[in-house]
Design a protein around this nucleic acid. Structure first.
Lengths: 204, 204
DNA sequence: CGTGTGATTGAAGCCTTTCAACGGCGGTGG
DNA sequence: CCACCGCCGTTGAAAGGCTTCAATCACACG
């Protein structure tokens, strides 16, 4: 599920994002809030960012977890539909909305397309997969996108709100997958996939 | 949930899509298949189109139902991630992928952004709402997007695969909403919302 | 060493699914 | 014209999976 992360265009051509200011955020800092004015997008250089949406009645949905190299905050609406927070210390390049160089616009367009594809994949996950499958593919996806560090920067509640489950179910599935030796854990936030993961996600 | 349909740019400026060929499809005709080469997008003029994705293990997810005025089939990947079928007799303008006029590209970009927003809304629906809420907001959304005709062109299975439910649950929720006078039905495919729908979707 | 937060575990309940049967309607063919 | 058949939708009963409510555990921090 999901596809390989696009190459980092700003790494291949450093001139591309010249003039973009690097911003630094502390752990738990809010990068922008829901309903804020959409002022631009970010290229995440380090750290992990989570985007969140809360519906009027309080139901919470985590939109995505962003890892270094990802672009987040590209929105066409004038106001933010999601908020974004730094899960740990983060550094990100800010791309002002007004920038109109063709190369920059292409970069942003590509990232919207990538976000759409990820979201569509997520749709299938939420609509048609069991709790166990959701948690398993979340772990695999996280391992891949985080560069294989195997660290869960986000808490159980965030995972639950990302997968459309409760915190308890996430916890249960984690211990179950661990008991079945699909993943191995060192403490609640460090994991490694075993070779059984292939079987586990055969259907995906 | 969802936002107002964007105005029809091609209606406001007929020259914009000059040279686009109109294509006609019969009821149940396949417009394109999953994994087909992505050759372009469509502006739906009449009829209703459904996009579908089937995972390797056979689980089915309806991506969206498109109504007249909607643009569908905009994908940046070289191959189609969803298939598209005409639910009834349809007419659509084909926008070839190679067209590069700024106005056309802007139109397509805007439609990707709109699709992303719809998909994100759908995510919250699938992740955090009950069966009853899903069916209710589906009906409201369909009424709005279909121009208030109140006709369900799609069958129960399609609705179920769109909402991440089973066909039986959809049916049960429909009769329940009908019993509670939130919607009134004339036959299984024609409905009208009553004033109680406001209460029903107060949380959304 | 107490406290507080995050994670896990247990038990009960509820919502959705599953499996099965029935009903309505339209098309087809005798 | 009507009987038959197949599809679609509805309904029922039982099972199951996830949630809810509650208690316990682990660990970092003051």
């Amino acid at each position: 599920m999901g596809q390989v992360r696009p190459l980092w265009p700003h790494r291949r051509d450093p001139r591309l994002l010249q003039g973009c200011k690097a911003r630094r955020f502390r752990r738990m800092a809010e990068i922008y809030a829901q309903d804020d004015e959409t002022d631009g997008a970010y290229v995440l250089l380090s750290g992990v960012v989570r985007s969140v949406r809360v519906s009027p009645d309080g139901r919470r949905q985590v939109g995505e977890f962003y890892h270094p190299g990802d672009i987040f905050g590209v929105e066409s609406a004038p106001r933010r539909r999601f908020s974004a927070d730094a899960l740990n210390a983060c550094e990100a390049l800010f791309i002002c909305r007004s920038r109109s160089e063709p190369a920059v616009r292409e970069l942003l367009e590509a990232s919207v397309a990538a976000e759409l594809e990820r979201t569509q994949d997520h749709l299938l996950l939420l609509g048609r997969r069991t709790a166990r499958e959701r948690v398993a593919s979340f772990l695999v996806d996280t391992a891949r996108r985080s560069g294989g560090t195997g660290e869960l920067v986000m808490g159980r509640q965030d995972i639950a709100d990302y997968l459309g489950l409760t915190i308890e179910t996430v916890s249960r599935m984690l211990t179950e997958l661990q008991a079945d030796r699909v993943f191995e854990f060192e403490g609640p936030r460090r994991f490694r996939a075993t070779d059984r993961v292939t079987w586990e996600l055969a259907a995906a």
